[in-house]
């Protein structure tokens, strides 16, 4: 039951994120959709290493618990989250430039202005 709930949540976040990415009309919402999809992917990776009844993989009072959750996916998710914020900042920087150049962030208007520039 717990597995079904958590996996459905992760898949729902990924699907919502991708749907928002492809059909948002405002570029700022596309960045938010990217953040949402990334959260879903992180949760999915975490679920792959989870073990029922496992303890936190940290030694307490000088000894390790016998059953632990897998530390390897945790380390990977840890780095993925930090990279995600870097990507987010880069996307925001690009949005600032788009806004400066075209004065709008509506996807259709930006696309039209870009095509006009290309065909000039």
């Amino acid at each position: 039951m717990l597995g079904i709930i958590l996996y459905s949540g992760a898949v729902a976040l990924i699907v919502i994120g991708i749907a928002g990415l492809v059909r948002s009309t405002h570029l700022f919402r596309a960045v938010l959709a990217l953040v949402i999809a990334e959260s879903g992917a992180n949760l999915l990776l975490m679920l792959a290493g989870f073990r029922l009844g496992g303890a936190v993989p940290i030694a307490t009072e000088g000894s390790f618990p016998l059953a632990m959750v897998d530390p390897v996916p945790q380390a990977m998710v840890l780095t993925a989250i930090v990279i995600g914020v870097g990507i987010q900042a880069l996307a925001i920087a690009l949005l600032v430039r788009v806004k400066q150049r075209y004065g709008t962030l509506e996807r259709s208007k930006v696309t039209a202005a870009m095509e006009l520039e290309l065909n000039k």
Partner: peptide
């Protein structure tokens, strides 16, 4: 999910810094 390290990263980096960047944006 027994991942305090990842929770700390998500809390500080994702919820904290990410929201700060979005708010500044």
């Amino acid at each position: 999910l027994k991942a305090p390290d990842v929770a700390m990263t998500e809390g500080v980096v994702g919820a904290g810094l990410g929201s700060l960047i979005l708010a500044m944006a």
